[in-house]
Amino acid sequence: MSTEIEYVRGDATRPHGPGPKVIAHVCNDAGGWGAGFVVAVSRRWRQPEATFRAWYRDRATSGFALGALRLVRVEDDLWVANMIGQHGIRTRSRTGASGDVPVRYEAIAEALASLADEAVALGASVHMPRIGCGLAGGRWERIEPLITRHLTGRGVAVTVYDHDPA
């Protein structure tokens, strides 16, 4: 059963709708947390950042790598999905020396496939900003089909939030 992605204006850290929910976002593989969507996540809950930092610190044995997923329960029926889909860090004003952006589409696809398994097991909908398209430098035209293939194609309801400017 396939569903459509729902697009709304609002704050992805305040997902709407009934039932269990997972807020998904893309993290980098450099251990950095402090810019982009994670700032909004950290304003609401401390657990996703603490879990990410411990996961990175223990990366030799923790499975921390591109394509990995870690779910963090933040409320009774709400989890945050830290997905490693960005190689390194960049600022909005510059890319790497070769002009490359840090997004890794294959890693995002792998993390989304794992997220689908988790969402189905939890009976959860998935909520997210336009993952991989901020500091990671990705293009939504490449991310959207990955969401369709791995999440909505498996019947997982997905809501994408476009944040209203302050």
Rank of each mutant, 00 (worst) to 15 (best):
V74F: 10
R46A: 14
C133E: 08
P102V: 06
P15G: 13
V38R: 01
S62V: 08
I84T: 08
P15E: 13
T61P: 04
G19S: 09
A54G: 13
L112S: 07
A68K: 06
G138D: 14
G36T: 05
V156M: 10
A111R: 04
V126G: 07
W33M: 10
W79Q: 01
E110P: 01
G31H: 07
E6M: 07
Y56N: 12
G63L: 10
E4R: 13
V160N: 04
Y56S: 10
D164R: 01
A54D: 15
D29F: 00
A12L: 04
W55E: 11
R73F: 06
W79R: 03
E49T: 00
E141C: 13
R73M: 10
V39L: 03
A50T: 11
C133G: 09
R57D: 15
M1V: 14
A97C: 05
T152H: 10
Y7M: 03
W33F: 14
G31L: 07
E6N: 12
R149W: 07
A116M: 06
E106G: 04
T61S: 15
P165Y: 01
G153H: 08
D162Y: 02
V101W: 07
L115Y: 10
A35N: 13
M128P: 09
V103C: 04
P129R: 03
I147M: 11
E49R: 15
R90S: 12
V39P: 01
P102F: 01
P129Y: 00
T61A: 14
L135V: 05
R70F: 03
G63A: 11
R154G: 13
R149K: 15
S2T: 14
W79V: 01
L66F: 04
T51R: 07
A50P: 02
A12I: 00
D162K: 03
S114W: 00
P129V: 03
G19Q: 08
A40Q: 06
Y7E: 03
Y105L: 15
G34Y: 04
D100H: 11
V156A: 10
T91R: 04
I131G: 05
R142W: 01
D11S: 03
A109P: 02
V160I: 14
F64V: 11
Q47R: 15
L146T: 09
G96A: 15
R44P: 04
D100F: 00
